[in-house]
Design a protein around this nucleic acid. Sequence first.
DNA 1: CAGCATCCTATTGGATACTG
DNA 2: CAGTATCCAATAGGATGCTG
Lengths: 113, 113
Amino acid sequence: MLGDVFHKDCPAREVLGHLAGRWAILVLTALLAHPRRYHELRAVVAGISDKSLSATLRSLQQDGLVCREVGEGQPPTVTYSVTHLGRGAAAALTPLLDWIRANAEEITARRTP
Amino acid sequence: MLGDVFHKDCPAREVLGHLAGRWAILVLTALLAHPRRYHELRAVVAGISDKSLSATLRSLQQDGLVCREVGEGQPPTVTYSVTHLGRGAAAALTPLLDWIRANAEEITARRTP
DNA sequence: CAGCATCCTATTGGATACTG
DNA sequence: CAGTATCCAATAGGATGCTG
């Protein structure tokens, strides 16, 4: 089965690998509400470094989930937005983020050390 | 805001870090349908090593998402299942897995090299 | 069967400095 | 502003061998 994430070496496994990192999840979600410029993203996704942000954005572009638009003028203005495909991915991520928001405190509080 | 995944050093960010890896996602999902024993998990989650599987299971246990039960007899039989909390997490992951299953081929096909 | 210990390599990711 | 380049530290993760 081609879409079986449990099978090695299948496309689904590869895509999961791209989306599974915490940075991709956060960046994609940050773009869901509306497009953002590079420095906005760096501020919104607190703690991400330039290197990780640009690497994550490149990876998301290559997968066709994020669109990069360069504006006119000096200094350059670059805006990132989710594509139609990316919107679907981000939507699929919101239940996870919602669940984490709701349960994070309980988990960290009860954690067995 | 305590549950804000976009804020550094908040519980939500930490929990996201635990769940974000591909192994945690797959293991948790593999346990959603029904409990499984160690060797079943290793077979179902194709490609995972003993080291990564046991590390993932330990992490999920510490977060209270997975329960480990040791059976009687020799050789030992150890069964893993999702807790109530873990069931919620796994449920929050299914939209993501479903989306990946549905779109993985399109993504890998159109990938800009 | 269900793992842990060890060794090793590869990838991730932060800090810093620099550029068009 | 929007990155890229470089260096380096930390982590992930595979292979192998061993144990109760």
